[in-house]
Design a protein around this nucleic acid. Structure first.
Lengths: 213, 213, 213, 213
DNA sequence: CAATAAGCGAGACGGTACGTCGAGTCTTGAA
DNA sequence: TTCAAGACTCGACGTACCGTCTCGCTTATTG
C-alpha cells in the first residue's frame, strides 16, 4: 500500500532526481497558496469551466510557471485540491458490525452534504472522472483506504456471525455503499435524510421479504 | 411527461417562432452528420477534451455557425449525442417482480459494458455531470423513464406481496440499482460478472443475516 | 523589377492560393489600423524593445491572430511600417547632373533629419539589419529604386560630358551617397547642415588637390 | 580621453565603491568564459535573437546572477564582446597622406570582410544601433580612436600641401570613409574588391571632372 | 585560525510575451 | 433564410526569458 501511495502522489518538492538539493528549494507556502486559491475560487461559486490556470495563478499571486513546476496541468492540481479538502477518516466504535457500517455510511452522507454546499467536491469529482489516470490517483489516495476500512468491518462481521459468509466481501461492500453513493454522487438533487445510513444497513440485514412471510 | 420532454428538448428545426417558414429550410442531413461526426470521433478514441466545436465542424464538413444555430454549446450537443446512442428500453416479462428487477438490472449491466467498450457514454457522462442544467436534461429524457419503470415494478411487488410495503419506493429502487451503478459508473475498473443482476436482487430479498438466523 | 516587387511584398489579402475568394475577406481597415498603431506607438516615444505584438494588438484594438494572419512576426510587420512611412520619391529637375545629384542627396538628408525626429526610421532600420531576409525585402522595395534613380542621373552625366566615364557607376554612386549616409545613418549624433548636399557634390566634382595645383 | 574610456568601461571587478576588497574576489576566468561563450554561439550561427542571457549562462556553465553582477543586460555585455573581437589598430607608414589614407580604408575593408565571415560584428553591430547609449559606448572605445587617427592624417595632409585646406576635417573624413562604409556596413551584399581603398582615395583627390576639363 | 563576507552554480520566484488554438460572432457569395 | 468558409475579438494554453531571490558551498581577507 505504501508504494501505491507514493506512486500516485502528484506534487512534490523537487521530486525528480532527489539529488543533494541544489538551487533554491521550492516554497511550501506557495504550494499552499495555490491550493487554497483554487478552493477559494470554487467556494466563491466560480464555475469549474472558468478555472483557468491563468486565473488560479492570478488569484494566488503566483506565476504560471510555478504551477506548472508542480503539476502538469489543471487536472493533476485538482487531485491535490480534493485531497486537501478531504475530511478525516471516521473513527469506528468497533462494538458491532452494524454500528460500524452505520458510521461508515453516515460519513459518506456527510461528504455528500458537504460536496453540495461547498461545490468543491461535486464538480471537481465529475471533471476528474474524464481522466482514467487521475481517477486512479484519486481513488488510490482517497477512496481506496475507505473501501479497505469497509472490507475490514465486513470481514469481522462474517467472523463473529453477524453476517452471511457465502458472499464475497467486494459485493457486500457495494451492496452497502451503493445506495448511499447513488444518492450522494450520481443524483445530487435527492435528499439525504438523517436516518438514511441506519435504514440502508437495516434493510440489507433484514432483507426485503414481507414481514409475515 | 410530454411537457418535460419538450422542455428539455435541445435541438429543434427552427424551434423559436415557428413562422410560415421563409427562406431555405434547415437540412436534417446536416443535423445527422454533426451527431454522427461526434460519435465517430469518440469511437476513434479521441479524448473528450480534444473535441472542440471547430474540430467537430471540420469532421462533419460543416460551418461552425451551423452548429451554433442548433445548439448553444458543446454540452447541449452532447446531450443529443447521448440520446442518439441510447439503447432501447428493456422489455419486461411481467411475470414476477424478481424477474422484472433482474431484467432491469441486467440492462444497466449491459449499458455499463457498452460504455466501456465504446467510450462514448462514460466520458460524456462524466463531463455532463459538471453542468447541473445539462444533467437535468439528460436525466429527464434518458434516466427518469427507466427510474419510473423501476418504481412501477416495485409498486406491483408491494401490491402482490412479493415486497415489504413499509419502505418508500424511491429508497427501494436505490437499494437495487445502487450496487450495480456503483460498479458500472463509479468504478469502471471492476468486473461485471454475468450473474451480478440476479445475485444483487436475491441478496436484497433474502437479507444478510446468516442462514441459520 | 515588377517580379522583385511582388516577391518581397509581405502582407497580402489572402495571398496564398488566390482561389475564388471564399469566406469573409480580410479587412483593409484592420490592416491600416495595425500599421498606424505601430506608428503611433513609435511616435509616442515607446522604445522599440517594448513593442510587443501583444501591445500592438491592444493598441490597434485587434486580436493577435489577426496580426499573425498577415505577418509572420514583428520584423515583417516593420517592413510594411517603414514602407508606409516612406516619403515620396524626389522630383528631379533634369537640367544638370550636378543639380540632380544635389536633389538626391538633399532628399537623403531630409530622411536623416526625419528619422531622428520621428524615431521611426532609425530604430526600426537598425533592428531590421539583423535579418538579412528582411533587409533584402526593405532594400528591394524602398532603397533600390532610389539607387537606380541615382544610376540614371550619373549615366546621363557621363553621356553629356559632365562626368568622367572611366569609373563604374556603382562606385560613383557610393562616392556620392556614402558621405551623406555615414552621417545620416551611422552617426546620428552628427549635424546635417543645410548646404551639405551641395558641398559633397562639389567636392567630389572638383577633387581635393589644393587649388593652385 | 582617459576619462571617456573609464566612463564607458562596462565590466569591472567590484567597480562601484572600491572598498578594501572584502569577501571572495570576482573570478576573471568566469568573465572570459562568458565572453568567449557568446562568441562561440555567434560563430556557431546562432541568430542574435536567440541569444538569451539564460542560454549564455548555460553555455558558459555559469549562474545568471554572475552575469548580472558584471553587466546590467545583454547589450552591455555585447559591447565588451565586440571590444574583445576588435582587430588591432593599423600601423601607419607615415610617408604620404595618400598612403596612410589607403591603409586606413584598407583596414575598414578588412573589417567588412571579417564581419561577414564571422557574423559577429555585423549583427551585434546592427543590434547595438538600437540603443543610443550603447552605441555611444562602442563608438567611444572602438570607433572614435580610428576616427581621430583619420583626422590626424588629414590634418598633416593639409599642412604639407597634399590636401585643400578650405574644407573642415570632419567632412573630409566622411568623404573618404563614407564610400567604404556604405559598402561594408550598410550594403553587406556588395563586393569589396582589393583595390577599392586605393580607387576611392584617388578619385577623391583627382575629382570627377572629365580628364580634358 | 576562526570569523566574516562576498562570489559562485543552481534553480525557484512573479512577471511578460510568445505563437497557437478554440470560443462564439460576423460577413462574404452561392444555393 | 441556410450553408461552407473563413475573418474577427477575446482569452487561455504551455513555454521561454526576464531580472531577482534564496539555497548550500567555496574562496579570499581580516581580526
Amino acid at each position: 500500500m505504501k508504494e501505491t501511495e507514493s506512486e500516485v502522489s502528484l506534487a512534490h518538492s523537487r521530486a525528480r532526481h532527489e539529488g543533494p538539493a541544489r538551487g533554491r528549494p521550492r516554497s511550501e507556502a506557495v504550494e499552499r497558496a495555490i491550493i487554497e486559491g483554487v478552493m477559494k475560487l470554487l467556494e466563491d461559486g466560480v464555475p469549474l469551466g472558468e478555472l483557468s490556470i491563468e486565473r488560479i495563478a492570478r488569484t494566488a499571486g503566483v506565476g504560471k510557471a510555478t504551477i506548472y513546476r508542480r503539476w502538469s496541468g489543471k487536472e493533476e492540481l485538482f487531485v491535490d485540491v480534493l485531497r486537501a479538502a478531504e475530511p478525516p477518516d471516521p473513527e469506528l466504535p468497533g462494538v458491532s458490525m452494524r454500528g460500524d457500517l452505520i458510521v461508515l455510511l453516515e460519513s459518506l452522507r456527510q461528504r455528500g452534504l458537504l460536496s453540495r454546499s461547498s461545490a468543491i467536491l461535486h464538480n471537481v469529482h465529475a471533471q476528474m472522472k474524464s481522466s482514467p489516470k487521475l481517477w486512479a490517483a484519486y481513488d488510490a489516495t482517497v477512496i481506496a483506504p475507505r473501501r479497505l476500512q469497509g472490507y475490514e468491518v465486513l470481514r469481522r462481521g462474517q467472523q463473529n456471525g453477524e453476517l452471511r459468509d457465502d458472499i464475497d466481501i467486494e459485493l457486500l461492500n457495494d451492496m452497502f455503499v451503493g445506495p448511499m453513493l447513488v444518492r450522494a454522487v450520481l443524483r445530487p438533487e435527492t435528499e439525504l435524510p438523517e436516518d438514511l445510513a441506519e435504514r440502508i444497513v437495516d434493510i440489507l440485514l433484514e432483507g426485503l421479504r414481507p414481514a409475515g412471510r
